[in-house]
Write a protein that binds this DNA or RNA. Structure first.
Lengths: 145, 145
DNA sequence: GTATGTGCAAAGAGTTTGCAGGGTA
DNA sequence: TACCCTGCAAACTCTTTGCACATAC
């Protein structure tokens, strides 16, 4: 993973470049996302922020995440169990998601670039983003069966 | 695409195998999904069903789609602009989605099987499904720019 | 100092559920 | 005939919005 401090500075720099202000509350959200290894949900981020700033509202968390989405400093992983976020790697990358415990990990896969080019060539679309998620059962949940 | 009549019969057979009943309303939903080339939204399906059965409720459309999801006879495409459905090809396959007009098309891509195996091998997950969606601008919307 | 972010509550969108009545197998 | 499906309305979840106040720059 990228060093969370480096990611945090990148996020701050990007937000400031867009003239968004950094506040203690939004900074707390940034810190959590910059260090996220576990793709937290909005609710989870909210709980962690409240541990530091108990008066923080859920709306503020949503607003901050939306700013980050706008400047492409966070990646939203859309899953039916509730969306999750990755602020450490804010660019498209594959996920492997456990259908039982909802654990998400990031494998390094080769060949996505080629696949994207193939899709662009065959459809004529100018492709800017992608989403590649695998679903299944993680080793821990397999062991429990 | 698969012949809509063939798909319709497959859907009916699968639902009956699970002891679900076929009604005029649910049949109307099945017919639309079996012939879907354009990945309709729930709202769109609802409108088309109402054209035939004006008293149909949105809840019935949702319930029927959920049955089909349960027996894996429809594929849900999760997009932020509102989820869309494919009843003609109810198995995982790639989509190319236009960010402007929301048009969705299905390219034939090679290499997804290999990528799935690579992901399974590197993570230890037993992978059963995947979701591969590309986002960009379609040729029509590019021409308008 | 001024525009922007915060916190609260209410509104909004999308989806699900409970129940009474009607229709399928 | 018995049970399931429908249609309606209410509930529910997730997310956004409006407004008064606080605060970063």
């Amino acid at each position: 993973m990228t060093d969370p401090r480096v990611r945090l500075n990148q996020m701050i720099a990007k937000l400031q470049a867009y003239n968004f202000r950094i506040t203690p509350q939004s900074l707390a959200v940034l810190k959590i996302l910059a260090a996220s290894l576990d793709h937290p949900s909005v609710e989870r981020i909210y709980e962690q922020v409240k541990a530091v700033f108990p008066t923080t509202s859920l709306a503020t968390v949503y607003k901050t995440i939306n700013l980050l989405k706008e400047v492409k400093e966070v990646l939203e992983v859309r899953v039916s169990a509730g969306n999750r976020f990755d602020g450490n790697r804010p660019f498209p990358h594959p996920h492997v998601i456990c259908l039982k415990c909802k654990k998400i990990i990031d494998p390094d896969l080769s060949g996505i670039q080629e696949l994207t080019e193939e899709a662009a060539q065959k459809t004529g679309y100018r492709i800017t983003e992608h989403c590649l998620d695998f679903f299944g059962i993680c080793p821990d949940c397999q062991a429990e069966e």
